[in-house]
Design a protein around this nucleic acid. Structure first.
Length: 500
DNA sequence: TGGTGCGGGCTGG
DNA sequence: CCAGCCCGCACCA
């Protein structure tokens, strides 16, 4: 863990791409000098080398919904992308965005998921399969070798990002928490009045439709949205989130980013911590606006009343990871995202729109403040509880040019684990503001502020046809999802875009 | 119940 | 032979 190596230059690109190796090589690079930051949204033909102590690498996590695929090789874990679940009618959510849920990994659960109606318009849900690897799903490979976990991705996701796993988990745990906090007082009240009465207490809960089936909340809209440049972190636990909140509150010199709520008009400074969900009874006490004010567009059943409350709260969490206002730009994206197919598939997550959103407030770089255990478990599943204080990275803007010449991507997820050898970078990275980098396009130059800790110059081989050829991307080390959408053009850098 | 990993087996290129 | 995929199973939370 040589701190001396933790220079921006080292962070500047995927170490895994610097070395020449393939996941199928009989011999992997031995004792890599550096490790990459964990990338939650790998996209494109990329390779990373993670420390075997990197928890998320140990768990083979990905923001994409990846399922295990048998490759008949016990040493290499292969996963293929399931795509994203969207509304078959492509209905617009109240904020104008689209529903993009994380497909369940389990086949059975996924089928069940797809049978559910769109929570917004009640039409069917549809699974958009990933076809980003020569018509097949994007595949990810994981291989443990020595003290390194080698990661290789093949293919470019041709669909929006689903809700990240961390978001899904956070949402579910939030639901559970809310249920717990809700039931608790209910039971108390029930017991108090008539102690001697033999009463089926469960009947009381029949009037609580919304939370009886937390799984229904899987179809919460918006919470399943790709996060613009899915920032630097995912919360392994709500506690981590709380810690994050506290941290952000504590750092008063850092301008808090604005949160995105379902209503695009509502942007509020990030509250200190609102992930602790209010129970239905507390819904009205929320200082924040209620979602789905447009009652005509949403179901009026009790489920939705509660669901909205939940979503609001969950969004308070989720939006912590997303700091952009896309909704007002979506019409602009559509022009640039003219992907073949009936649906205009947006992926907000791909396009950190800072350049297009002057109101956007950059966030400080992500970093971990705690020390992780030194254990170096095997590649196979290692479920660990990491107490990390994560901080969302500032989302640099994306630059994409036609023909994939060069792009500046968002740091979609640089999970800087404290065990990472490059930890020391982040102390330095605290020295905001971020450096200004000028990315040059064929038609314009645009100053882009990108925090130095999030820089990665990525070299990636191009998809099959161009395999062998390599392009260099200047991008944040988190390697946000890349090109691959609709001609690989970011609407934010479509110069003729009306949004400019 | 669902996420995850393993591995058998089938199919097509 | 490889890749993709389906399936069942086991383990875990």
């Amino acid at each position: 863990m040589p701190a001396a190596e933790a220079q921006p230059a080292d962070c500047a690109w995927s170490y895994g791409m610097k070395l020449s190796w393939d996941i199928n090589d009989p011999q992997m690079p031995q004792k890599p000098a550096h490790f990459d930051h964990f990338c939650e949204w790998p996209d494109g033909y990329v390779r990373f080398i993670y420390s075997s102590e990197e928890k998320k690498a140990q768990r083979h996590l990905s923001g994409w919904a990846m399922r295990n695929t048998n490759n008949h090789n016990g040493h290499i874990l292969k996963k293929s992308c399931l795509g994203v679940v969207v509304c078959a009618q492509d209905c617009a959510l109240p904020d104008g965005s689209r529903l993009q849920l994380r497909p369940a990994i389990c086949d059975k659960a996924r089928l069940k998921q797809q049978k559910k109606p769109c929570p917004n318009c009640h039409s069917a849900l549809e699974l958009i399969p990933c076809r980003g690897h020569s018509g097949y799903p994007v595949t990810n490979f994981w291989r443990l070798d020595g003290n390194a976990i080698f990661f290789q991705a093949k293919g470019v996701h041709d669909h929006p990002r689903p809700e990240s796993k961390s978001e899904t988990e956070a949402r579910r745990s939030a639901v559970k928490r809310q249920m717990a906090s809700f039931y608790q007082p209910q039971k108390k009240r029930i017991r108090e009045p008539e102690a001697g009465e033999s009463q089926d207490h469960s009947r009381h809960f029949n009037n609580i439709p919304s939370l009886e089936n937390p799984e229904d909340l899987d179809v919460i809209p918006d919470a399943g949205f790709p996060v613009p440049g899915q920032p630097c972190l995912s919360f392994p636990s709500s506690d981590a989130y709380k810690a994050t909140c506290d941290l952000t509150t504590f750092q008063g010199d850092i301008v808090p980013p604005f949160q995105k709520y379902s209503n695009p008009r509502i942007y509020l400074p990030r509250p200190a911590c609102s992930y602790e969900l209010a129970g239905p009874g507390d819904a009205n006490s929320s200082p924040y606006p209620t979602f789905y004010k447009d009652a005509g567009s949403i179901p009026k059943d009790a489920d939705w009343v509660h669901l909205n409350t939940l979503q609001y709260n969950v969004n308070t969490y989720s939006s912590f990871e997303r700091s952009f206002d896309f909704t007002s730009k979506q019409h602009g994206w559509k022009a640039a995202l003219g992907k073949a197919g009936p649906r205009e598939r947006l992926d907000q997550g791909q396009f950190p729109p800072e350049a297009a959103h002057p109101q956007y407030t950059p966030q400080p770089p992500c970093r971990y403040l705690t020390t992780a255990p030194p254990a170096a478990p095997a590649l196979q599943t290692v479920i660990t509880t990491t107490t990390k204080v994560s901080y969302q990275a500032y989302q640099p803007p994306a630059l994409k040019y036609r023909d994939n010449v060069r792009e500046v991507k968002s740091l979609s997820s640089c999970d800087y684990a404290s065990e990472n050898t490059q930890m020391s970078i982040y102390a330095e990275a605290l020295d905001l503001p971020a450096p200004v980098v000028t990315a040059t396009s064929p038609t314009a130059s645009l100053p882009l502020k990108i925090p130095r800790d999030c820089w990665t110059v990525r070299q990636h081989a191009l998809p099959p046809q161009t395999d062998g050829a390599e392009a260099w991307d200047v991008c944040p080390s988190g390697l946000g999802s890349t090109a691959g959408y609709a001609g690989r053009i970011s609407p934010f850098f479509s110069w003729d875009n009306e949004d400019f």
